[in-house]
Design a protein around this nucleic acid. Structure first.
Lengths: 346, 346
DNA sequence: TCAGGCAACGAAAACGTTTTCGTGTTGACA
DNA sequence: TGTCAACACGAAAACGTTTTCGTTGCCTGA
């Protein structure tokens, strides 16, 4: 087992100083052609690679990005990571991932763990619990220590950082408008409780679309699901709630769901009730995941372009990190959503 | 913006030496109660946290695990990461993620990038291209430098490292046996080319099950899909291939697919051909992802317990890292698969 | 012959820790 | 009064780099 070799060892072996070795390897003109070649040959033979940790300590930057997300077993988030990783890699950065599991405490701990020198900056999406408690001190503290943050998707406005979001309201409006144009008269929305910012925004888009077409919103058409934990039995109760929605609204002919799962579950219930899609009922979801693509019927959906969100977030962060002047100008980039039409709409 | 504070700054401020500060913070008995309290109060006020990079350099360990996987937008892999992260976090480790995108070159580059001091060990699943080229020098080199590796799922036998795998052959055999017991007479398999080790093993399990029931395998019932890129048009050609499979075998009444996507696609084709499931055709997939759970009919599948695989892999690696004696004893842990019965089988 | 300059190299500091090994000041005790 | 231990603290090395600033030795030119 040959351990990693260091400058010091090369120096001793070749009977020169550490500085000489370092310079020789970086092709400094200070070093004679002779020694340079000698050193480089030796280094190559022993497969020398500079120690990253030492470099990080010296340069006071780690070339590593910390990602904190609520969960990773989720098509959208993994798409975002994939986008971040692509850009980061191209620009010589690594990514280190922390999971909050939607928990405030874990979010805080994870950030503290990484903020102590391990990374140069954060890209994150806020945990539900944090949004609920509205305690953002860990973000402001991190930022005030000079470590930049980029938030995506679930953001909170009054934090001084770059943000990458989708036009949730606009996307929802687009979807609901589509349903209206397709002839739906009674459109329901299946959404989350309001503390989830994106849920709230999408609900707003739904209302906007109705208003734009002079349709009065009905409270009975709005189902706000309390998704404490997405456990198995939650799925059952979700089905029941949706079934109840159908029962309350016999003339229901359109559904807009703020995520894939709600949409798919609505489909399931509809099918059980003998409704034909898209003839009797049209459904549109949010988030273009694998479920939408392979459902029966395939689901029309609002795509958020998770990959693009990740790429943009990484660009913003790295640009910030590598910017010379220390100007604190923060951007909020909006990634356009796209309505992907499939079989669940006419 | 108050920058991170260091021992040196505390020392200067309090007019003591760096060593004193360090010792005071670690509650050394060498330091008087007085100074200890003074230092700790000061440190707390300025929210002092030791710099991780400096610690890593000093201790020659980073408390970080490197994960290299082919892709992250994939239910199985993200489950594994989730499992790794859970264990790693509990034991005070971070995880840093590299994606190979199934490419040999990216796998090598990513590993080199991380191996230079950034991490203490690897957990990885081999890229398809690497398996195809059978070039494993980057693994052996990493190991010979004293950095442990744990492989999962896609492994190669003659590398000296811990491995966590599922009993692919056994799981496949279980599934196919189930089909046989359910009365299927003509069972097809939709699998990958043989260089993907898990595909090969699952095919073997299929053959084993047939043999155990004295059924002669028919070449026309084995479809080996060449999944170069899982691009959109690949999905189309996949459908065509499967359709061809149905046409060649009119009496087809059971399908075992080595992954979710193949199974779902087979379902789609079957539905198009007017087959009822599970009455006319029974299908079992491999990998318990989100698709299986929400397909119509829901898909009976062989679950690999990705989370558990990740947890076990992390345990093995960390145990190895923290083992005192330097014994090179490597384990291969087999995680039992489980047949999850749903609507696609009788 | 000697000042000056250049080529080639080395010493040392710095990044932020921890830890080993002094060292100086007490106080007690003979 | 002198000795020795205990106490409280500091100096310095070490981890592996890069970089600044010397410091040689030799050659050139007047």
């Amino acid at each position: 087992m040959k351990k990693k070799i260091t400058l010091k060892q090369i120096a001793r072996e070749l009977d020169v100083s550490i500085s000489t070795v370092s310079k020789a390897l970086r092709n400094s003109i200070e070093i004679s052609e002779d020694t340079r070649q000698k050193v480089q040959a030796f280094a190559k033979f022993y497969n020398y690679r500079p120690n990253n940790i030492a470099l990080s300590l010296k340069n006071r930057k780690t070339k590593t990005i910390g990602i904190i997300i609520p969960e990773i077993v989720h098509h959208f988030f993994s798409k975002v990571i994939s986008g971040i990783e692509a850009v980061a890699n191209k620009r010589g950065y690594n990514v280190i991932v922390g999971l909050s599991n939607e928990s405030f405490a874990k979010e805080v701990i994870n950030m503290e763990m990484l903020a102590n020198g391990s990374i140069d900056g954060f890209i994150l999406s806020i945990a539900k619990e944090t949004l609920q408690q509205q305690d953002y001190h860990h973000f402001t503290e991190t930022i005030s220590q000079g470590m930049p943050i980029v938030m995506f998707d679930r953001v909170v406005n009054d934090i001084k950082c770059d943000k990458v979001i989708v036009d949730d309201a606009q996307g929802a409006k687009k979807a609901v408008t589509k349903l209206i144009h397709n002839g739906c008269k009674n459109i329901a929305i299946i959404t989350t409780k309001d503390y989830v910012s994106v849920g709230k925004l999408r609900t707003q888009g739904y209302l906007d679309a109705l208003e734009a077409h002079k349709i009065n919103p009905k409270a009975s058409l709005v189902l706000k699901v309390d998704d404490e934990l997405l456990s198995e039995d939650h799925l059952d109760s979700l089905e029941k709630e949706i079934e109840h929605l159908f029962n309350k609204n016999k003339k229901l002919d359109g559904i807009f769901a703020v995520n894939e799962l709600y949409a798919i579950t609505a489909m399931k219930v509809a099918r059980k009730l003998g409704l034909k899609m898209p003839e009797d009922l049209q459904i549109i979801g949010f988030t273009d995941g694998v479920l939408s693509k392979h459902a029966v019927p395939t689901l029309t959906t609002v795509s958020q372009h998770g990959q693009k969100i990740g790429e943009k977030a990484a660009e913003l962060l790295i640009n910030n990190l590598e910017r010379e002047d220390e100007e604190d100008i923060y951007e909020t980039v909006i990634i356009e959503t796209e309505l992907i039409e499939r079989e669940s709409t006419k």
